[in-house]
Design a protein around this nucleic acid. Sequence first.
DNA 1: CTTGTAATTTACCAACCAGTCAACTATTAT
DNA 2: ATAATAGTTGACTGGTTGGTAAATTACAAG
Lengths: 202, 202
Amino acid sequence: MGRHSDAKQRILDSARVLFHARSYSAVGIQEICDHAAVKKGSFYHFFPSKQALTLELLDQSWLGFEQAFISSLLNPERPALQRIVHFFKLGCEMQQRLLDKTGCVLGCPFGNLAMELSTQDDLLRAKLQVFFQRMETVLEKALLEAIRTGELAENTDTKLSAKAMLAYLEGLLLMAKTGNNLQDFTVLSEMALKLITNRCKD
Amino acid sequence: MGRHSDAKQRILDSARVLFHARSYSAVGIQEICDHAAVKKGSFYHFFPSKQALTLELLDQSWLGFEQAFISSLLNPERPALQRIVHFFKLGCEMQQRLLDKTGCVLGCPFGNLAMELSTQDDLLRAKLQVFFQRMETVLEKALLEAIRTGELAENTDTKLSAKAMLAYLEGLLLMAKTGNNLQDFTVLSEMALKLITNRCKD
DNA sequence: CTTGTAATTTACCAACCAGTCAACTATTAT
DNA sequence: ATAATAGTTGACTGGTTGGTAAATTACAAG
């Protein structure tokens, strides 16, 4: 019943792009609506608040991220460790595409929001933390498979190594964003595997 | 001539604390003034804009950071590599202190602003980039001394290793902030030295 | 003690903020 | 055809944003 429309999706898409390019607080609902060619009244027809929009936005973004990045990280055609390097490379290419389009290194859409909002909105913080945990789990899966194939020692601390590599990736993205420059990103990202650690005393 | 006052410093201190606890855009000038017990008119007597305040704030913060952290990183009493580990530990202790005081892991005051503002204010971005470069230089100095003392191989790529370790530190701080939790920080930070790399083919 | 100067105070601005509401329109299922 | 539903619209709220202007106060040097 009633009419149907893609306005809600347009709002979500606009918010994703604008939040990524600038920040959560720097982008107002009016601007999102303008970008989506939607009146503010419609926004509040679909979302009760900016926070609610962002929660939904994040779920969608994660799905897109899963499709674009995680699939390749679990793709069994490549050796597991090489897949992790490839995953970093995919991230670099994505940043390059955004740099070409916008003139700015935009960094990680999750990391950006996590940094900005963690101390200000506990719901959004918790959601972003879950995404990072999922990401760690996926990285750990690759490490576990690397153990199975003999690429890695049995006593590799997969959880810790995954955590370290994710933190390193987020840090690299922050540095690239701050320098508005991707030059070192590739070579630095190839060093991520160095963070793989063994249990107990290394 | 004229009267003297510490209002300017109070404004700087308040802004530093509030920006660190929340974010640049989330903290208004009115709130800074209230926190500093100063009227807004006075604010604009001392600073032409929020950006100008922040530029000055950052210079002061860097001096404080230098005094609290960098000195120990160049202190020749300890072996150079151990100093880097100690530097990470100092950072962790500082985060713990702020967590006790505020209930939140606040992360790096420079990294937070860099993440939020890099795509929005090129002046502030450039300033923060310079701080990161200085930080890399200091880390590199420690690495160079480690080479001199034989702790590290001659062909260590000190620049690249310093970059990697700084990115890793910033990433760790982001993850701790997102989890509002410092539990893994210590053990993860001890892995920073793993990022030390040799030139050419590693 | 006066004069120049720096600091303070108050009132103010237009623009924007997130969010509300009721009226209206288009569509779809019956 | 009609009634229920879903989407659209524009006007509106109270509060806040960064920033301005002018008058006033306090002080320090001559």
